[in-house]
């Protein structure tokens, strides 16, 4: 596939970088959800005020 810029290499870079970010973001999402569940389990049950 040839781009308008003739930069096939840039598409490959795009795919690699996007793949890396996708994995990183997935990992961070899992950690965030697990962390949120832990905080709610440990603290929110003790009826902390929302304000």
């Amino acid at each position: 596939m040839q781009t308008a810029m003739g930069t096939h290499w840039f598409i490959i870079v795009c795919m690699v970088v996007t793949g890396f970010f996708a994995v990183a973001v997935l990992g961070l999402t899992i950690v965030t959800l697990r962390f949120r569940a832990k905080v709610i389990r440990d603290f929110d049950r003790r009826k902390w005020d929302d304000c």
């Binding site: 961070l28 965030t32 962390f35 949120r36 905080v39 902390w48």
Partner: peptide, 18 residues
């Protein structure tokens, strides 16, 4: 996505904000 995610990570670490 990462904009929303980092806000929600921050909120998760702050009691009562998530």
């Amino acid at each position: 996505y990462i904009y929303v995610l980092q806000i929600n990570l921050a909120l998760a670490s702050d009691i009562g904000q998530s």
